[in-house]
Amino acid sequence: MVIPVHDVNPVRGTPWVTYTLIVANFLVFVFTPGLAGSVAGDANLAELCHYEAFLDHYAAVPQELLHHRMPRLVPTGDVGVGPQGPGCVIGPPGYDKSPELSVLTAMFLHGSWLHLLGNMLFLWIFGNNVEDRMGHIRFTLFYLVCGYVGAYGFALANSDSADPLVGASGAIAGVLGAYLVLFPRARVWVLVPFLIFLPLRLPAWIVLGSWFGIQAVYSSGQGVSQAGTVAYLAHVAGFLAGMLIAWPLKPGTPPPPEPRGILFGRQARRAP
Rank of each mutant, 00 (worst) to 15 (best):
R260A: 14
S219Y: 13
G223T: 06
R201A: 13
V190N: 07
A227F: 07
P256L: 07
T229L: 11
N158R: 11
L55D: 09
P256F: 09
V192C: 01
L208N: 05
L165V: 15
K250P: 02
C88Y: 09
W247A: 11
F142W: 03
W16G: 05
V74T: 15
A24L: 13
A234P: 04
L200C: 04
L123D: 00
S112R: 10
I214N: 11
P99L: 03
Q84H: 12
F142E: 02
V192R: 03
L244C: 07
A173D: 01
G111P: 08
A46C: 06
W16P: 02
P184N: 05
G265C: 06
I196Y: 08
R201V: 10
T140N: 03
G77M: 05
F154E: 07
R270Q: 10
G111K: 12
K250S: 10
P86T: 03
A53R: 10
E64I: 10
Y143Q: 04
D132Q: 08
L208R: 04
R270F: 02
L249P: 00
V79Y: 00
D42N: 15
L263T: 14
V89K: 14
P199R: 08
V30W: 09
Y152H: 11
N158C: 13
F26I: 05
L180S: 06
L208Y: 04
D160E: 15
A246V: 10
V190E: 07
Q222I: 13
H115D: 15
P71F: 09
S102H: 10
V39F: 01
G238P: 01
G221F: 07
P272M: 02
G252Q: 13
W205A: 11
L176A: 06
I196P: 00
A162G: 14
S220A: 03
Y58I: 04
G82I: 12
N9I: 07
T14P: 04
S102N: 15
L66F: 01
F154Q: 07
L73R: 10
A40D: 00
L66W: 00
L66Y: 00
P184T: 09
G174M: 05
P164K: 00
F183S: 13
Y51I: 08
G221I: 04
V74L: 11
L176I: 12
S112L: 07
L101P: 11
L117E: 08
R185W: 02
V166D: 08
L198W: 08
P164Y: 03
S102T: 15
L165P: 08
P193V: 04
S169G: 08
S219H: 12
V145S: 02
V149P: 00
P184C: 03
G34P: 10
A241V: 06
T20N: 06
G82S: 08
L27R: 04
K97G: 14
H110V: 01
Q63D: 14
V8E: 14
T76H: 05
G167C: 08
W205F: 15
V166M: 12
P4T: 10
Q267G: 10
L233F: 14
A43N: 12
V130K: 01
P193T: 04
G213K: 13
L156A: 13
V79G: 06
